[in-house]
Design a protein around this nucleic acid. Sequence first.
RNA 1: GGGCCGUUAGCUCAAUGGUAGAGCAAGUGACUCUUAAUCACUAGGUUCGGGGUUCGAGCCCCUGACGGCUCACCA
Length: 500
Amino acid sequence: MDTRYDNPLIKQRLEKAEGMREEGLNPYPNDFRPAHTAAKIRKDMEGLTSEEIEAKGKRYSVAGRIISMRVMGKNTFLKLRDRSGDIQLFVQRDVIGRELYGKFKKYDMGDFLGAKGTAFITKTGELSVKAKSIYMLSKSLRPLPEKFHGLTDKETRYRQRYVDLAINPDVQSTFITRTKVVAFIRKYFQSKDFLEVETPMLQTIPGGATAKPFETFHNALSVKMYLRIAPELYLKRLLVGGMERVFEINRNFRNEGLSNQHNPEFTMLEFYQAYATYEDMMAHTEALFSKMAKELTGGYRISYQGEEIDFTPKFNRLTMQEAVERYSRGELSVEDTEDEAKLLAFANKLGIADAAKMSWGKLLAEVFETVAEPHLIQPTFITQYPVDVSPLSRRNEKDPRFTDRFEFYIAGREIANGFSELNDPVDQLERFKAQSAECDKGDEEAHWIDEDYVRALEYGMPPAGGEGIGIDRTVMIFTDAPSIRDVIFFPHMRPERTEG
RNA sequence: GGGCCGUUAGCUCAAUGGUAGAGCAAGUGACUCUUAAUCACUAGGUUCGGGGUUCGAGCCCCUGACGGCUCACCA
């Protein structure tokens, strides 16, 4: 049963639309072509006096959504919003005619309107368009939220993002910044001779990360498939094939919990460069973030949730062990972290669950995450990751307990993860097998054995560095967004109506 | 998944267990330079759903749905 028109506010508007049809007018025409935007008019008239503007007499045509309307007898002021911003429209009965003005007064906030006219400045100093003619372009049936408080209910903002975008001005600018971030990244890697590629989202062996995948099924092939948790293993197959510099910006899917920093599908940049190491990856990261800060904000310092983040190179750099020492305030020194008993005692003190079952490397990583991670506010590289938490990274030549891997932190969050790639097929197979054993022990996220990937490595993969950068989290930093939901147009939620 | 908080008119919010209100939006009228325009009048509600306690429930209890924050897991 359709109850939508029970709402008197919607019914009224519907009746207005029907009234137009009865008069032979289409409430949804598509024959008006605006030649100008609000911003264009502003730019044209910038710095001119009222007299100069009127003397120009240039005719404009604009279109947009009515976001406010003040009828004052024979005059009406309304604000029109287009993609570039807002422009005030001044409509007078004696200009557009008594009959049209009478109909026009019944237009509603939210309607799309086209107008033609000349620019002028009102007595109170606002640049406006004096309408010579107006056109209803699309009748809005649902009332928009209130003009002063706007729409603040987060659930409605996320579920009905179109309303959020239409009336909360900062929302569009957040997503415009998102687009700029992605565009900047493309430009950066293209300038470094990287090729943008696309690899499978549907995979039979979900690899390249440790995470629970979404499952699906391909009917024609009659095979179980998974939405990818990372593109990594495919991109490295491209290295095997001789594509020495590749990057991909695309969605990953992980069947895990949601939070302020986790959406089930999220966007990841991954890039791989032959004849490079994790040091080169850190250099790219530093260049990318510092240049991006400059391009987006004009400077190296930005504000995130009340903290100043400084992207002036060089970024901080600590080994994992050094970070533990520093942020445990010396309670667990670098030397202590070498002592498994001391490390375990400290982990227990921190309340890390199942610490006794963990290997030394896993324990170190857990302790690091608990004690140091939240303090890594400024852009910081953490290096020297233990081999047992790094199944795809190249071993450090001086200390085989570690890999040549780093993670990049901003505002206490992991933003990127990069390493010198493991290209020894024998070592890789052993690590897959070790992960497989973890899997048998019940670790649902342990890496699967990907035989074809090992076969690819057996043909020979050039030494390489690779990295993944979380795009959503990066955008959060540059838009001062507290939640990942604020930088994803349509964040996932439970369905709003539960029928059946 | 755990804990805490929330859900009342289109929106933003009120309401000791005692007739559910306001502002904006809407309708009617006034108004030829407004900026959250102003003024007058009018209309607008299954208080998230279900059950219970009570003479009486928006409020108390139980239960379900959805969301926010947070912890756990992860990027």
